[in-house]
């Protein structure tokens, strides 16, 4: 059996290590920080973890419809492709900082890309 991306990256421990780094990047990225600012930080941290687990191919229960529903209020506030790209960039930069090999980062990017239309409500 070949290992999944999630296992190759290091599983839950890797996600835990990535959460702070990723969230700090997102909050200091002016292109997207507004989407995250208003919300309660502790709740947000749990959601970042959910996001990273999913982006890294880990076990999750989110369907495409959930992604649609979960981001609909953000789409209503103007969430678009540029924001989506910014999140992808921050994810890649986070994984680089944690010394994840380039081919695994590309795998994660592909997983995220597959959710684009749902996240953006198209």
């Amino acid at each position: 059996m070949s290992q999944s991306l999630f296992e190759k990256i290091g599983g839950t421990a890797a996600v835990d290590a990535a959460v702070d780094v990723f969230y700090r990047k997102v909050l200091s990225d002016e292109r997207i920080s507004d989407f995250f600012d208003a919300v309660d930080m502790e709740r947000q941290a749990a959601k970042q973890k959910a996001f990273l687990t999913m982006a890294l191919g880990g076990p999750n229960n989110y369907s495409g419809a959930d992604m649609r529903r979960g981001h609909a209020h953000l789409v209503a506030r103007g969430l678009n492709d540029a924001h989506f790209d910014a999140v992808m960039e921050n994810l890649a930069a986070t994984l680089q900082e944690l010394n994840v090999p380039a081919e695994l980062i590309a795998e994660a990017a592909a997983i995220c890309e597959s959710t684009r239309n749902d996240v953006l409500g198209r």
Partner: peptide, 15 residues
């Protein structure tokens, strides 16, 4: 507390 949590985090403290 809310503001400080964010600023402490941005200043490098782990969540």
């Amino acid at each position: 507390v809310k503001l400080a949590r964010k600023r402490a985090f941005m200043a490098g403290a782990a969540m």
